[in-house]
Design a protein around this nucleic acid. Structure first.
Ligand code: NAD
Ligand code: NAD
Lengths: 214, 214
DNA sequence: GTCACACTGTGAATTCTTTCACATACTATA
DNA sequence: TATAGTATGTGAAAGAATTCACAGTGTGAC
């Protein structure tokens, strides 16, 4: 399987979503420059990204939407689907559960955990909420490989360690603290404060340098 | 004012948060390699990043935590504070309002908007919720420069256009669609589906390439 | 059947980012 | 006051990511 950088992979995920929308509209073929326009990039970059999934475009007709979705799927998805866990069923955690509920069949939230007794043993957005003591057991039983962390910042490191001990190898972290984990665990941070400060800064200094202009 | 790349700026924001925490713990000085360890980077990168704010370290003592926070603030923040707006007071929008409420004095959410009549004219997490028809007026009155978009995907483009028309120059977009705006508007997308797919992918293929190892 | 065209796939060039490595400078100590 | 030692600031090198640019190719027109 070819190596892809993180950015590369992110864009493949984006292309797939755009392609799914096109497919729903009945569009069967698409050119790299059209996809680029939708994704906010350049045609060359789209083509370069698609090399990872084994390019399958044809001149004069571009890419088959159906084939592309399929190829990206083969590349991105776990062969037999995958379940994620979420720890911290607060404001953000519940919003995320609502968002992912019933959305992606190949990657869904299969277990939630919270330390608050008033939240455990309830079903929230179609997903059972367990006490944190059950993390290890449930993660192992369900074969969960990926987890979302939405606990308060001071609990995040300990939560990450528990999850890793249970076998989780990928973390999506919403707590505003960098997590320390072993090199075999992949961490993606979503840092809204940083994002908002970036936006404020670049909005002040004469806007975008690189926006979808044409 | 020196030019900084997006990544650069993001890290400055992160450093500031880490430094604030240190300051609260009573720590007065810090070395680049310590900050690097906390932020998950290298010492050289920290020093390089800090060049943007005008470096002010001293050998043997490192950087003054207080001075650094101050310098980063001068660099990052609007001189007299700044108000942001949020459009879409749903699950995610409310979580974000709760999160930012009373947190950053220099960059706070000063107005919320929703199209749902049952939400407007209420105060949610200390912030007035207006009908969408008032976006233009309120944004102008409050001098809002930055907005957060948490409306459903199909409404996002129209919302962005309304905001830009009202004078907003920076958007933090949570809707899973790339926004088309003019080149003078800065857009930052937070795409949770992409993030989760990335985590799942890299978790599967032997974890991180580049995590905080040492 | 064959021609011309527009688009793909991809090496090479460019641009952007990170890391290296070292001269410089400050402090503590005696 | 002189000295030793360690951390900074930064040019230069290395490494990534993006863009350029063009050869190759399948398609539709005729
Ligand atoms: N709300 C947002 O929009 C937002 C934005 C950015 C970042 N964050 C971060 O996301 C995290 C959650 O934010 P929130 O607004 O949902 O907070 P919240 O207080 O609403 O929810 C936190 C939840 O975690 C649970 N919890 C606490 N300790 C736990 C533990 N050790 N194990 C399991 N569960 C535990 C609590 O019971 C609660 O249900 C925080 O770290 C916050 O900084 C939130
Ligand atoms: N919930 C999540 O965790 C999550 C995660 C990723 C992305 N998103 C995206 O964020 C957006 C909001 O998600 P949500 O879960 O909060 O949805 P939601 O349905 O709970 O909230 C949407 C809100 O927007 C309001 N709204 C609808 N049209 C509007 C308009 N034209 N102008 C102003 N307000 C309008 C609705 O009244 C509602 O209050 C969606 O685009 C979603 O795809 C959400």
């Amino acid at each position: 399987m070819p190596y892809v950088s993180e950015k590369n992979l992110g864009r493949l995920s984006l292309y797939r979503r755009l392609l799914n929308r096109l497919q729903a509209e009945g569009i069967r073929n698409i050119y790299s420059h059209e996809l680029a326009r939708m994704a906010g990039g350049t045609a060359a970059q789209v083509r370069r990204d698609l090399m990872a999934v084994g390019s399958l475009g044809s001149p004069k007709r571009g890419y088959s939407v159906r084939e592309l979705i399929e190829s990206i799927g083969i590349f991105l998805d776990a062969p037999h689907g995958e379940g994620a866990a979420i720890v911290g069923v607060g404001n953000l955690g519940r919003a995320i559960m609502a968002y992912f509920a019933g959305r992606r069949p190949r990657l869904s939230i299969v277990a939630a955990f919270d330390s608050d007794p008033s939240k455990v043993n309830r079903v929230i957005h179609g997903c059972r909420c367990y006490p944190v003591e059950d993390i290890e057991r449930v993660v192992r039983e369900e074969g969960v490989n990926v987890a979302i962390i939405t606990v308060p910042a001071r609990e995040a490191q300990a939560t990450a360690e528990t999850l890793v001990r249970a076998g989780v190898r990928g973390l999506l972290n919403f707590a505003p603290v960098p997590l320390r984990v072993g090199p075999d665990v992949y961490v993606e941070d979503i840092d809204m404060t940083m994002a908002l400060e970036k936006v404020a800064y670049f909005a002040r200094r004469g806007g975008a340098v690189e926006e979808i202009t044409k």
